[in-house]
Design a protein around this nucleic acid. Sequence first.
DNA 1: CTGGGGTCCT
DNA 2: AGGACCC
Length: 543
Amino acid sequence: MAAMHPRTIVHIDLDCFYAQVEMVADPKLKDKPLGIQQKNIIVTCNYPARARGVHKLMYINKVPKVCPDLIIRDGSNLKRYREASEKILDHLRGWTPEVERLGMDEFFLDVTHMVADEQEKMEKKLDFVGHVYRGETLTLIETQTRNESHVPSCTAKVHHCRCGCYQRLMTGSHIAQRIRTSLYQTLGYTASAGISVGKMIAKLSGELKKPNQQTTMLPAYIDGFLAPLRVRKIPGCGYSTSKKLASLGIETVTQLRNLSKQKLIKAVGAQIGGRLHDLAFGLDTSHVVATVREKQMSEEDSFKSCTAIDDVALRILSILRPLLERVRMRFQKHGDLPSTLRLTIRDRLSHQKTEQSKINTSGGAYFTTRTSRQTTIPLGFFHPENKKQEGYCVDHLMKLFFKMIPRKNQRFHLTLINVAVARFQAFGGAGKLGKQHGIDSFFIQSPTKTAPSSEDNIPTTRMAHLEHVKHTTDATRISQTARKRKFKTPPSFFRPRPPVQCTSGERAPQPERRQPAEQPVEPEPVTAEEIDALYITAARVTP
DNA sequence: CTGGGGTCCT
DNA sequence: AGGACCC
């Protein structure tokens, strides 16, 4: 008979990740209260700081009261955190290829095979290592069983699962311990872990004892553990879903269990409803999906106010540069390039009206909603040898911006700008080939365009102008100088060779998804008239 | 007066 | 393109 709980899943959660990265880099910080700041917020902090009352997502102005000597590090540049996360991911993959990353600091490992291997080769473990949920009960039962004395029937029932999961989880707890130890010894990071028979329950188990500890959850205790939890604790049941459930009078898992699947699905949709119903009973068959590369890359910046076009362009530029750098690094490593470029904004003015309706319908705090526009771009566009990509990108992004803020006179009040690239595809086989064959061989002139003129330098010129704008505030004067400038033919764009072959062999076959208009349409850079209009608008909008 | 990322579903 | 979720 097939085992009822065949898998062993380990969830690894790095302790206060950003803070730990800083502490590993600078051990002096280790025992002092440390907070990581982004904008006006302490996004995370180490445990000494937590002992003083600092917590995640705490406003910076609250800090002096609770912890005046908090050491603060700036966390707005995520580079080192990304790198640390990659190292950790690689390290974990050394133990098993079945590693799924969630965010930067959480990892699911399916260690079923490791457990099986170990059980074949070695003596079976006789004890758990680390915490076991309700382990006292367990010890009591074992002692009593050994002594053949009376075992209360209800308790005995509880830990009795004959499918073999008890032994597997015992082995799993040792594997988790070894992984955590090696993580600490090789990279210096501590983590908490949860060990159980499914992803959700492993994740929830790991939260029971932190930091730098681990907890195993035996199937017999799952139902009892889940019963009193708020539904909001269930991964996948977020703010919105839990509000919907609350409106039905459902706040705990027990209440959720008493709602029919039909009603649940009606309330929150088939996907989430179905999942949630199962999860309420601890039933979780979702697989650990090995993490491959990111499917999109983005950079964003938030701020109090951005109301002028020039400001938009400059902010876009400053976001764009590190993003392009990341695209280059990825291309060097994996030989793929993105073919989608997206601009996202948060505009106070344009969604002010919806704010009211949002409050009315959802009855809660409004979330400033984001608006985005995206465009397809020829694959070769992002090739490192395309020296003008920075300027071209600003062109595209400004066009996308004007799709969202269309009217010349329309005022706007941005509080966030995000630039993203997506739809990565293999380009030219590999990053290095470019040099061997001469980079020109990777580009073909777009057939929709006439040959590039020698004055194909508009973006560069305009970029220089943008840099100039940075040091001046007289928008009117800018608009006049801009108008005098003669803009010529739009720049040419590149197309890659006929596709070489996607390297995504490792991915499971996907349901056939139609690519939107694969022909890389001419991206249409901003025209001279539009640029003029842009500056005129800037002049009007600027106070 | 919630950061700066990401994923998948509708 | 937006919504909801995760960290």
